[in-house]
Amino acid sequence: MAADTRRESDVSRESDSGRGSTAGGSAGNAESHSLGPVPLPAASRFRPLLGLLVPAAVVVVWHLIVATGTIPAYQLPTPLRVAETLYGMGASGELWGHVAITVQRVVLGAGLGIAVGTVFGTATGLSRTASDLLDPLLQSLKNIPSLAWVPLFLLWFGIGESAKVLLIAVGSFFPVYLNLSTGIAAVDEELLEVAEVYDLGRVESLRRVVFPAALPDLLVGIRGGVGLAWMFVVAAELIAASQGIGFLLSDGRTLARPDIIVGSILLFAFLGNCSDVAVKEVRDRVVGR
């Protein structure tokens, strides 16, 4: 509490001096008093930056651990070494092929999984019969780990792109299906009665009541689905790929290049984060008001 107060007074002093330079010395003490709370938003603007403090500290500690030899460099490269490797691969153009193919797989796979998940989720959400028929099966399939699918998909679809895209589609299907199905089934009975009283009809009540009401659930499902797509792309690329970030990972292991391994992991983290932020942004625009 005491620290808070101190910070607040620090900030307000800063803003006072700032204002002095623009508005001249006419600003009296009484006025600056009433402006006390104003600097608070300025302080909160830096709040997101707090999230960078711990990662920065981790990088420093990481560097120190390797530099002092606590962990040997052949097991863990220094942060700088990882950055150099990534930069070198980027500059030579080698990296972009891997990134592009992985992103392409995720986009195609997640797109397919989201589309099929939307269809099945809508069907089971709307129809009790469809739910009774399909839901028990789908609920048990969702528990199969991603790696368990890989041998079967290789057998069925070969080592081409289709096996990987389909595997990713399986991953992103489930969150979309589960969220949309429950979302549609849980649409407020009271609103459905409104639709009935005003004779909206089947199609219109879907368009104007059911789908908008379930849209937040769909978007939650899509966010989960995109997240799982990144999990599944690693499974696909680790085992059967000659290109992609997952391939880079396993290649780094074969070549005993920890810098490539760590670099690939960081690439996955970065790309996964970007897609998550993008989906979240879309969700906030659509749902948040």
């Binding site: 009665e193 409104v194 009401a213």
Partner: peptide
Amino acid sequence: VGMVFQEPRLLDWA
């Protein structure tokens, strides 16, 4: 027949 329910029952996204 039109009906005004006990609760407003509005679509809160609209």
